[in-house]
Measured scan of single mutants.
Amino acid sequence: HNLTITQGKLFFHYNPKLCLSEIHKMEEVSGTKGRQERNDIALKTNGDQASCENELLKFSYIRTSFDKILLRWEPYWPPDFRDLLGFMLFYKEAPYQNVTEFDGQDACGSNSWTVVDIDPPLRSNDPKSQNHPGWLMRGLKPWTQYAIFVKTLVTFSDERRTYGAKSDIIYVQTDATNPSVPLDPISVSNSSSQIILKWKPPSDPNGNITHYLVFWERQAEDSELFELDYCLKGLKLPSRTWSPPFESEDSQKHNQSEYEDSAGECCSCPKTDSQILKELEESSFRKTFEDYLHNVVFVPRKTSSGTGAEDPRPSRKRRSLGDVGNVTVAVPTVAAFPNTSSTSVPTSPEEHRPFEKVVNKESLVISGLRHFTGYRIELQACNQDTPEERCSVAAYVSARTMPEAKADDIVGPVTHEIFENNVVHLMWQEPKEPNGLIVLYEVSYRRYGDEELHLCVSRKHFALERGCRLRGLSPGNYSVRIRATSLAGNGSWTEPTYFYVTDYLDVPSNIA
């Protein structure tokens, strides 16, 4: 807008934040220059609390790290170098490059900038070799853009010569660093050979998330399962459950009422301010606690030095998902009996873990797994792929695949051998790939016309006998059925096997 004052003059007093240069501009645009008398524009009460600059400061050096910015700028000295009290560095987070010096300023003089007072450097006698002032900004957020400017702080001049310097606002972004852990990993099994893994992005990506790394490792069953005799009275049979499938998407929606109208769909109840505040506090606490764990609990591995020492970490090797089922080394339970199943799973520490690289999504279907087997899954978020990966501390989750139908069934015939004193040795093959492992066998036998009897055969007993022995049988026709019990439950009964026990007292003698 054009402003013209045809008559009258300007009068400025007691404006401590208004620089004289701005008042002189007002004289020019209003056409009143030359009308004012000496005392109409006070030299001592206008701009006496402001830094009124008329020179431009330029930054000469900028260096960044993930949490620091090192700045240096060209030296500046007023005509009387004693008038320079120091520099004021202003900075704040700036997602967009549209910041002005006066953003967030209120009537009390406060604003949204963080201000650092910096002492002037030592003055050199040689004007050509003056030290460049600077400042190291610490405690910054990774991968965050900051708006920065600097200006001088000078003393009051009796001659009211307006001098000083100020830089333009520059924008500097800190470097990326390792992201925080992925949030809320959930693993479920939808079949006997697959596990579905879902997660949420890290709360602090500290860069642009480029991919996720998912490692999985087959877990050995508890050692007590191999040692305890679950045929003993009072000892509860062990059981394991597989990871249940995901709930429906509708039930997972946030901010939804727990109660549904019987007449149909209901609208979600909005969260109160107290609920939102509580969630923010919980989120802040979780982030602080995660940072504490990362800094205190997890110790970084030592990389190899120039002395030739090897990095103890196993090298990563990509495998196809079809090879995942046989990740671990199978060892027989008892070496003397080769027909026992290889369900003991000690994992070799030198073995390469299978892994998958996930790009542009937060889910993965891990296939080719062994049925009813526990897996430990390790999830890392990465925001750099080359020249070397920059990934987060791992988040861990466990899951067990679903049982395989008929995996616990005894394959092959049940054979028998009759000894003296009416002892019958029953023999059968253990299931080759049971659900988890076989903890015991149930032997059901009966003599024709009598009630059915049951015998429990422990895992250890089966390994020693290759089956079991029935003792003290009365003469007669017998039928026997056997079924295995694994961590997933009972298998199917075998087809009945028949044998006849004679009275050993009636056996004919070869003595003449």
Rank of each mutant, 00 (worst) to 15 (best):
205 P>R: 12
206 N>Q: 03
210 T>S: 15
211 H>Q: 07
212 Y>L: 03
216 W>L: 13
217 E>L: 14
217 E>S: 08
218 R>T: 13
218 R>M: 15
222 D>E: 06
225 L>D: 04
225 L>R: 09
227 E>K: 08
228 L>E: 15
229 D>S: 08
230 Y>Q: 12
231 C>L: 02
235 L>H: 11
236 K>M: 09
236 K>C: 09
238 P>Q: 12
242 W>E: 09
243 S>H: 12
244 P>I: 12
255 N>Y: 07
257 S>R: 07
258 E>D: 11
259 Y>V: 11
259 Y>H: 07
260 E>H: 15
261 D>P: 12
262 S>Q: 07
264 G>Y: 06
265 E>Q: 13
267 C>Y: 12
270 P>E: 04
275 Q>P: 07
275 Q>G: 11
276 I>E: 11
278 K>E: 05
278 K>L: 05
279 E>S: 08
279 E>R: 12
281 E>K: 15
281 E>D: 07
281 E>S: 08
283 S>Q: 09
284 S>G: 11
285 F>L: 11
286 R>I: 04
287 K>G: 08
287 K>Y: 11
288 T>W: 12
288 T>I: 15
292 Y>C: 01
294 H>A: 15
296 V>L: 06
297 V>I: 11
298 F>S: 07
299 V>Y: 13
301 R>I: 15
301 R>M: 08
302 K>R: 11
302 K>W: 15
304 S>I: 11
304 S>R: 07
305 S>F: 11
306 G>K: 12
307 T>C: 07
308 G>F: 05
309 A>N: 11
310 E>G: 09
313 R>N: 05
315 S>M: 12
315 S>A: 07
316 R>F: 15
316 R>Y: 02
318 R>K: 13
319 R>D: 04
320 S>A: 14
321 L>T: 13
322 G>A: 13
323 D>L: 07
323 D>N: 11
327 V>S: 12
327 V>E: 09
330 A>S: 15
331 V>T: 15
335 A>L: 13
336 A>Q: 03
338 P>D: 05
339 N>P: 10
339 N>R: 12
339 N>D: 12
342 S>M: 06
342 S>H: 14
342 S>L: 15
345 V>W: 12
349 P>R: 14
352 H>T: 04
352 H>S: 06
354 P>S: 11
357 K>N: 11
359 V>T: 12
360 N>F: 08
360 N>W: 14
360 N>Y: 06
360 N>G: 07
361 K>V: 06
362 E>P: 05
362 E>G: 03
362 E>K: 07
363 S>G: 14
363 S>T: 11
364 L>S: 13
365 V>S: 09
370 R>T: 00
370 R>A: 13
371 H>C: 09
371 H>V: 06
372 F>Q: 03
374 G>D: 10
375 Y>G: 01
377 I>F: 06
379 L>C: 09
380 Q>W: 09
381 A>W: 01
384 Q>T: 09
386 T>H: 07
389 E>K: 15
390 R>W: 06
390 R>G: 14
393 V>L: 04
394 A>H: 15
395 A>F: 08
395 A>D: 09
397 V>P: 07
399 A>F: 07
401 T>R: 00
401 T>I: 03
404 E>Q: 14
408 D>G: 01
409 D>L: 13
412 G>T: 06
414 V>W: 01
414 V>A: 03
416 H>E: 04
420 E>S: 03
422 N>K: 13
422 N>P: 01
423 V>Y: 10
423 V>M: 06
427 M>C: 02
428 W>P: 00
431 P>S: 03
432 K>L: 13
433 E>T: 11
434 P>C: 03
435 N>A: 02
435 N>Y: 00
435 N>L: 00
437 L>V: 07
437 L>S: 01
437 L>G: 04
439 V>N: 05
441 Y>K: 00
441 Y>N: 01
442 E>W: 10
443 V>H: 00
443 V>F: 01
444 S>M: 07
444 S>A: 04
450 D>K: 06
450 D>L: 04
453 L>D: 06
455 L>G: 09
456 C>T: 02
457 V>L: 14
458 S>G: 05
460 K>R: 07
461 H>K: 09
461 H>A: 09
462 F>M: 12
463 A>K: 07
465 E>T: 11
467 G>A: 04
467 G>T: 03
467 G>N: 02
471 R>S: 05
472 G>V: 07
472 G>W: 10
473 L>A: 02
474 S>Q: 10
476 G>H: 00
477 N>R: 08
477 N>W: 04
477 N>E: 04
477 N>A: 06
479 S>E: 12
480 V>I: 14
483 R>H: 04
483 R>Y: 02
487 L>K: 05
488 A>L: 04
490 N>A: 04
492 S>H: 10
492 S>R: 04
495 E>M: 03
496 P>R: 05
497 T>P: 00
499 F>N: 00
500 Y>Q: 05
501 V>Y: 08
504 Y>P: 07
504 Y>N: 04
504 Y>F: 08
505 L>T: 09
509 S>W: 07
510 N>A: 15
511 I>F: 15
512 A>V: 06
